[in-house]
Design a protein around this nucleic acid. Structure first.
Lengths: 344, 344
DNA sequence: GTGAAAGCGCTAACAC
DNA sequence: GTGTTAGCGCTTTCAC
């Protein structure tokens, strides 16, 4: 009646517990016929290895920790980012037979490092996925590395050599978006920068500059406004940009929440979108499709990125050299209704 | 250099490991002076109990599993519900020294039960929090109960006696909202029902009927439309309701996503809100504050509900009789801009 | 290919 | 109040 253990399986299959262990862990050196006997016994007894025992003996669990900036610490605009992150990680976990532990953390606190270490040392996860912008913060990364736990960084902003990471081509695709806008005839293309703590987002600004240059357009500080990734900051920047003496005919925001803020302001100001003003965002969160007109944006492959990360960590050889260190999954431009030809 | 174990602490403190264990677990029968010595040793060595070892010996982990309907299985509108759920559970966990495992599951699948059992048996969580609508599905609840793991249901819809649950007063507060609308002079108040699988949501419909009766208004089938909790279904129901021969002057939707859908349709149809049409929702997700005009809605205390659940499970005595079985945390009406006096 | 024995770091049951 | 002794169910190491 009690839950079957590895001993019960061994007895039924007529082998030693070590052989059962080999079968369960897909290790080599088991004769196919033996393997089959063991698998039958497992099926008959409905045996499931106890993860606690496994973790204790092997010194790491089958848990993967997902760490991201705590939305409760500030005013969370849409949450789409986090949900995508989780969805991807969950997908990777289910393929890899691991479970997902979520651990938002507030990097603004002094003790984050200590708190993070406590989390990792107590749960001993098989690996950690760190989302941006935490992925580009030394104090976070160092705290994780101090525990010796494998870690994959998402969009760390710069490919610092040997650490594992999964990113998208923020800079290139931002340049592409800018060229697309220029191709529509826009001469005055503004940019709203995002959270300065977020390096990958900063790369989008660099891409914007690249795109301008490639399109033969001059960069001008007067066409740049500093946001912080929030809807509200998008509104504020839009007001500033649109009420200037020579307003832009297109605004490219470093993320969708801010782009949605711009749209809201345009509506309030009775500016036709995309007739008088084109608006482009970045991320393709659910909100981008819910506003009207739907936002032209860059589809960031966040779900796939997180999935890859979980998959890499799920393999026990996450520390090995075999896997590529810094993976890049390209983003794609989604043209919807908020962009159009420049007005005369 | 290796991580300190309970033996190291015992040696430094000059006591047995059992005493260290007592201190760590806040058990009684330790002299204050001894306790202090042990605590010092713990601090000096930076000792942290290994949860795997604890779990193995005590037969349950310090993990809490949060189970909810998989948003990836259908078109997720806002995600606000899930984020609130997680935020509350996380809050309860941090107080109780447990960590949160998330496990969305798709109840539409035949094998959910088996899959759920596998999840629980492998991770041996200290407790499970089941969100609605899974919390009112027998096959889900039975699968969990079969594992013997303590479980708190969120908004199960009916207080089925002895099981642990945390709910809100869906029915009463819906009646209150209906009375509020009637008090504004509305005679034709329509209702959009939600996901039929979701019992707590069904209670809102009952509350609507109660409110009608209490306000001396006649219930009419022609003023009811069947949605499924999604934004899109809200739009469809609104079209149906608004394009009828005698359209309502107020629409009360069983959740905010549908209410937002109604608002979208009203905008498209150039119907002034709240001048010509009042709209009320339920849940108070972030979206309710982001749309324009901001939605009058019912603030469901989801964060607190999930927090309570995690707290109850975090205490080892979750199975004891001492704690109240079915807790109710009342919801509150939030009047914003989408409701107003009935037109003539 | 397979197995025996020795832990992993803790809690539980009971002795003192 | 405190300590002793067995496990919990696995993986590891190493022998065969």
């Amino acid at each position: 009646m009690a839950r079957p253990t590895i001993f019960d399986v061994a007895k039924v299959a007529g082998v030693s517990i070590k052989t059962v262990s080999r079968v369960v862990n897909n290790e080599p050196n088991v004769r196919p016929s033996t393997r089959e006997r063991v698998e039958n016994a497992i099926a008959v007894l409905k045996y499931r290895p106890d993860q606690s025992a496994r973790s204790l003996a092997s010194r790491h669990s089958h848990l993967i920790g997902l760490i991201y900036d705590d939305p409760a610490a500030y005013d969370t605009p849409s949450g789409g980012y986090i949900l995508d992150l989780q969805q991807g990680a969950l997908k990777g976990c289910s393929t890899g037979l691991t479970e997902l532990l979520i651990h938002p953390c507030n990097f603004r606190k002094k003790k984050v490092g200590v708190e993070l270490k406590a989390f990792i040392e107590q749960t001993r996860p098989a690996g950690i996925i760190v989302a941006a912008p935490l992925s580009n913060m030394p104090k976070i990364i160092h705290a994780i590395e101090a525990t010796g736990t494998p870690c994959v960084r998402l969009s760390p902003g710069n490919d610092s050599g040997k650490r594992l990471s999964v990113s998208t081509n923020d800079r290139d695709v931002s340049a592409e978006m800018t060229r697309y806008l220029a191709g529509l005839g826009h001469k005055r293309i503004a940019f709203i920068t995002g959270d300065p703590d977020h390096k990958a987002v900063a790369n989008r600004f660099l891409g914007y500059k690249d795109g301008l240059k490639e399109s033969g357009l001059e960069f001008s500080e007067s066409l740049v406004a500093a946001g912080d990734n929030s809807f509200g900051s998008g509104e504020a920047c839009a007001e500033k940009l649109l009420k200037g003496k020579r307003p832009p005919t297109a605004i490219f925001a470093a993320n969708d929440d801010m782009a949605a803020g711009v749209l809201r302001v345009a509506n309030r100001l009775n500016i036709d979108v995309p007739g008088q003003l084109s608006i482009a965002g970045f991320d393709d969160i659910a909100l981008a499709r819910q506003v009207e007109p739907a936002l032209t944006t860059v589809r960031q492959p966040l779900v796939q990125m997180a999935e890859r990360a979980a998959l890499v960590l799920g393999k026990s050889n996450a520390n090995d050299k075999d896997s590529q260190n810094a993976e890049v999954i390209p983003a794609v431009i989604k043209i919807r209704e908020s962009t159009g030809p420049a007005p005369h």
